[in-house]
């Protein structure tokens, strides 16, 4: 069942240096019980895409009229970008949609205990008594693997270790029983052994609560281990989209191929590390045509003039590359 449909999302920002396009015609879907990975390098537009789902972007953000984000709930469809006012927005801000961030300290107020914040959040979104809210919160802290949950409930975020804080944030995000969880780099600041624990936890939670998760990271290994589907972003565009197995094993877009070649792999220590030539262009100097043409090893003259469309390469696999599409139709 489709839970979230993002259709042709285009988001621009007015800045001192001019209007920049941060997200350009992005479309994807997340089903209930499914993890969609959103991967891409710094500045590719992952976080602003995620924030759009909660309409959390600042005042200088402009959505084009074609942009549409639909959340399909039992009660009916929610047209997210048309929501106005705090009360109406609650459904996507902690109600049916919750978000966890890279830096858990940012989501906890420093002077309030973890428990008090969880209770406050619950009472805002659900009709529960304070006592019930506490019981739900302690239970959720236990569910995410926090020992001494009753004690932690009365502690402040700064008193917990990094991994514990991340768990507490996940517990808070899940306590309202959201249908969609947005996780923006939830493991990036963690050590690998703790990252492995958090990844396992998130997988268990999908199975248990049947949520949809949008999992944002720049680490393709993390995507391979957590996601069912993946969308690869470059300069505000989704350039390849499909099942994790297909995209990682048989990438068709030169950027995805380059990204995979640049990753040092433990099972092949003799492999040369191949960088993608050149640097990521500034958002103020977005290339014409295919946004990747300034760095693409197989670019042709047409690539700087024509914007490639998303083309199907398999049942669950699309990519936006003129040359790859031509080669496929010739084959």
């Amino acid at each position: 069942m489709t839970l979230l449909t993002v259709d042709n999302l285009t988001l621009k920002f007015d800045t001192d240096e001019g209007r920049i396009t941060a997200v350009d015609g992005v479309s994807f879907e997340v089903n209930a019980g499914e993890v969609l990975g959103l991967v891409g390098e710094s500045g590719s537009g992952k976080s602003v895409t995620a924030k759009s789902l909660m309409k959390l972007n600042p005042g200088n953000a402009i959505y084009t009229p074609e942009s549409k984000i639909t959340l399909s709930l039992e009660e009916g469809d929610v047209d997210v970008l048309s929501l106005k006012g705090n009360k109406a927005l609650r459904v996507v801000r902690g109600g049916a949609v919750s978000m966890i961030f890279q830096e858990p300290m940012a989501s906890f107020a420093p002077a309030i205990t973890i428990g008090a914040q969880m209770v406050e959040q619950l009472m805002l979104h659900k009709t529960v008594t304070k006592k019930e809210a506490k019981a739900i919160s302690v239970d959720m802290l236990e569910r995410v693997g926090i020992s001494d949950a009753a004690k932690r409930f009365d502690q402040y975020a700064f008193e917990l270790s990094g991994g514990m804080r991340q768990r507490a944030m996940i517990a808070m995000a899940l306590s309202t029983n959201p249908k969609l969880l947005i996780a923006d780099e939830p493991t990036t600041a963690l050590d690998v052994t703790i990252q492995a624990q958090v990844i396992d936890l998130m997988k268990d939670l999908v199975a248990e609560f049947h949520m949809g998760i949008l999992f944002i990271t720049h680490d393709l290994g993390v995507i391979a281990q957590t996601a069912d589907k993946v969308a690869v972003m470059y300069l505000g565009k989704v350039i390849e989209y499909g099942s994790v197995r297909e995209v990682i094993r048989t990438p068709v877009h030169p950027y995805t191929q380059g990204l995979i070649n640049a990753i040092p792999k433990l099972d092949d220590l003799d492999a040369e590390l191949t960088p993608i030539p050149g640097d990521i262009p500034s958002p103020l100097e977005r290339p014409t045509g295919c946004v990747f043409h300034t760095r693409c090893p197989i670019a042709e003259p047409v690539c700087s003039q024509q914007v490639p469309e998303m083309t199907a390469f398999d049942t669950n696999h699309t990519a936006a590359c003129i040359v790859a599409a031509r080669q496929r139709s010739a084959a």
Partner: peptide
């Protein structure tokens, strides 16, 4: 050993040899 097995593999079907560590430093 634990550190090595915690590195997420690029192969979606290789979930490592489950030498996952409990707890934190």
């Amino acid at each position: 050993k634990a550190l090595l097995s915690a590195i997420p593999s690029l192969d979606p079907d290789n979930h490592g040899d489950a030498q996952k560590l409990e707890g934190e430093i």
